[in-house]
Design a protein around this nucleic acid. Structure first.
Lengths: 357, 357
DNA sequence: TTGAAAGCGCTAACAT
DNA sequence: ATGTTAGCGCTTTCAA
């Protein structure tokens, strides 16, 4: 729709389109006087570069695609926000695709973004196994980084929170505030987040409560399941209920209170992810915050490295340190909310990504 | 990144690039035999059209931009989802821009999307007044529809829920279940949603409870404000607390219960929007659902009409009928959740948009 | 119905 | 440092 083109600016400033292009995109040195004239002309004409034409010629759209399972999943909006901001800060745009939690739709969306010539792809895969082929194929055509969830080994670079470290923070906190009788409400299945959190719990709990492995309930990542699971474990009278995500924890708290339990006095409950609801529920929920801004920044860093040429190198898997957010659901009495910063760890490299805003 | 081009398909199928183009984009009639050969060649080569080249030539990117205040606002993800699905169903793509609730950022994002040659713009304006100029300017360059929030009169086409009808549904429901002493927790300010809901309440409440206008608290659309406002009105012992959105309602329920009130036995609480949290809170929240799918469909319909040429016509403002969702927070006793469908009204036209999925 | 040719607006060689 | 010339991959006149 923009009517004024490079040619117009060239005509008005009295030089060639090539020179104008060079001034405006800063590709090559240009005489200071010419540059001034060009800029003045562009300004007075209200020139806006046509990114489509630029993309066709330079083979780079300045656009990256983000493919995610469901934007309505409460953890994703904050990730989308950070990705969008990081991208726009670098003058790039974000093409968003929502897969409706369906691997077939995911294939379709990836194809569509590729046709639109995205420079690179950020993918939160729908399914550990069913997304593999589509991701691998896409990764062979364009730089691709997996975000938040993995998708089998050796498919692409990936960035995620260190689930094991997060679970360790939770267990330390609960043990440190006197909890002794643990149980775990998790998710069954092979999704990387489900497996990693479950495994980390199992590993860490042995030393704290040898009988805890018998108090594990596995379902899915939902409030419903949290309610049902809470009902099943309450007869065992745990004093700490560790949940694999915030939704499960919210459901667990609701049911425990209905059953007459005092949360947190009698039993502490913890979540994982720090979705918005965690700080708005009653009581507010102790949880593990995923460093969304860091994750976005890391993912773009990896993408930019691939874009800069390191195409053939081995895939890297970056794990970012989570942060424990202590709130009312695990506090002995009305002590209020506070945060404990966790040391940041990165695996396998050991850079320290920029701080979360 | 796609290496195989139209020329390759032309060479393999033994005809000209023009013919291949016509077959693949169905622009003009082509001989059945040729068409078959072309399709076979395209298939065997794994040809994927380059949408950037297509866009440059045809002056249409098949991409629309969505500009919103903050993706982390809990009502927007469902709207984004519906827009994305409606767009992809028509083979189009979605460029997403998040304004961080800042009008200056909004200007920047709109400019960026325009440079990327979006075919049209969907805008949820950040601010009633501060967004006006940017929206008006953008609307002069490309078809633009305002979504969910207005932005002064006569700026562009707009689609939103009928807030007045929603508030009427709430009042009918509460009065019909025996509530007699009302109060309202709303938002101050000039945002269209705040004003419309407030006004509708004031209009409808007179007949039900002449003294209710004295029990109105105005703050912002947050859980915090809901808590504070609940504390301020509880001494008046209302039996119905009408809130201008779900966040306020969630806060109000929390504080009312802390104050010893029985919700819903003693006092009913209602929200607006039906954000995910409304069905997950305890008790579940009676609220007014915004027809997100209908809104998305309507907005695209208006956009497509402008795209099809009706550029000079007067701006249209479509209001879609909301749906009352009755849940536990307004039910006399543990009757459980149920829904009451509302008649759909559309202003000023009277089409009946497709059903919500 | 099909082909040849001319660009869309820009950047990148290649000249100068 | 600047201009000239080719295209990027596609659609769309214009002829045939």
């Amino acid at each position: 729709m923009s009517e004024v083109t490079l040619r117009d600016v060239a005509r008005v400033s009295g030089c060639s389109v090539a020179t104008v292009s060079r001034v405006l995109s800063g590709t090559r040195p240009v005489g200071p006087e010419t540059a001034r004239r060009v800029r003045a002309a562009a300004e007075s004409l209200g020139y806006r570069p046509n990114q489509v034409a630029r993309a066709l010629r330079s083979r780079s759209t300045g656009t990256i695609g983000l493919v995610l399972p469901q934007i309505t999943n409460p953890f994703f909006p904050s990730l989308v926000r950070e990705v969008e901001h990081a991208l726009h800060a670098g003058g790039r745009g974000l093409l968003l695709a929502d897969c409706d939690d369906d691997p077939a739709t995911e294939v379709d969306r990836i194809t569509s973004l590729l046709e639109r010539q995205v420079d690179a792809l950020l993918v939160i895969p729908v399914d550990e196994t069913h997304s593999r082929d589509a991701v691998a194929l896409a990764a062979s055509r364009v730089p691709l980084v997996l975000l938040d969830r993995a998708c089998g080994p050796g498919v692409a670079d990936s960035v995620a929170v260190d689930n094991a470290a997060g679970m360790a923070l939770v267990l330390d906190h609960l043990a440190g505030t006197g909890r002794r009788r643990f149980c775990f409400l998790g998710a069954a299945g092979t999704a990387s987040t489900a497996v990693e959190r479950r495994t980390a719990y199992e590993t860490g709990i042995i030393a704290l409560d040898p009988l805890a492995p018998g108090r594990v309930e596995l379902g899915d990542f939902s409030v419903e399941w949290g309610r049902a699971a809470a009902e099943r474990i309450w007869p065992a009278r745990p004093d700490a209920v560790v949940c694999a995500n915030d939704l499960i924890a919210v459901g667990a708290v609701q049911r425990l209170r209905q059953l007459g339990a005092d949360v947190p006095g009698e039993v502490a409950v913890t979540g994982f992810d720090d979705i918005p609801m965690a700080s708005l529920s009653e009581p507010t929920l102790t949880t593990v915050r995923q460093p969304a801004a860091d994750m976005a920044a890391e993912a773009l860093r990896l993408l930019d490295q691939r874009l800069a040429g390191r195409a053939a190198e081995a895939h890297r898997s970056v794990r970012l340190a989570p942060e424990l957010v202590v709130r009312a659901s695990s506090t002995p009495r009305a002590v209020g909310a506070s945060r404990a910063a966790a040391p940041r760890t990165t695996i396998p490299s050991s850079r320290s990504p920029e701080e979360q805003q």
